[in-house]
Design a binder for these strands. Sequence first.
DNA 1: CCAGACGTTGTT
DNA 2: GTCTGG
DNA 3: CCAGACGTTGTT
DNA 4: GTCTGG
Length: 231
Amino acid sequence: MAKHFSLDKEPEELLRFNIAPSQMIRAVLALPHSGTPVLRLLKWGLVPSWARDAGIGNRLINARAETMAHKPAFRSAFQQRRCIIPASHFFEWQRLPGGNRQAHCIRLKDGSPMGFAGLWEHWPTPGADDSPPGSLFSCTILTTAANELLAPLHQRMPVILPLESYDAWLNAPSAQVASLPAPWPADTMESWPVSTRVNSPLNDDPTIMEKQKNSLRRNTISDLKEGKASV
DNA sequence: CCAGACGTTGTT
DNA sequence: GTCTGG
DNA sequence: CCAGACGTTGTT
DNA sequence: GTCTGG
């Protein structure tokens, strides 16, 4: 991880398998006067600096790369505060006819790390009786059009940056990186269906990545009532 | 000028 | 903070 | 993303 | 339906 993301030391406690929006997530970012990028914990869900309260972050978990440069909520972060979120895999939920959702796990075929393009912000936290004023550091993950592998599952996918673009994404003037976000080539990725156990962030272990076994049991009446009948 | 929004996903 | 709508 | 909550007044 | 929390 340190080598891939040019960090000056190997991070600790990196093993997470199921990170939900609103949770803390590690991101690589460039700080002024810092030679090498640093790894920081950010709250997933960007809270703009002007927000009245932090609740808006619950909805700003993604930003469309096509419009990030112009949207008031993301514009300054795009210009000044871009980051890269390391990931070994991610999940997408496929809407099935009937309304059920099938979760899928996606990763690179060769298992190498992905770097999601992101933006980060700082929001001044109001002081309270038991806590002094401070800053909330948060982030959002950029999305782009789904590639051919992901298209059957979902219309959008996270922006995955090629290794050779990391430095530019973190350090170059924004005008030079606006067109970097693009769908990752589908032929280097793979996906497989996984259990609904992934739906709970409490299940944060490697078993949520296991391929879902085909269900050979007969449909039950309750399955039919709940629209869970297999085809 | 002031007031109010500021976003994505997906579903209808 | 900055933009849009009235 | 998904899961789960979501509200006040007044009456028992 | 919409918002909040994880």
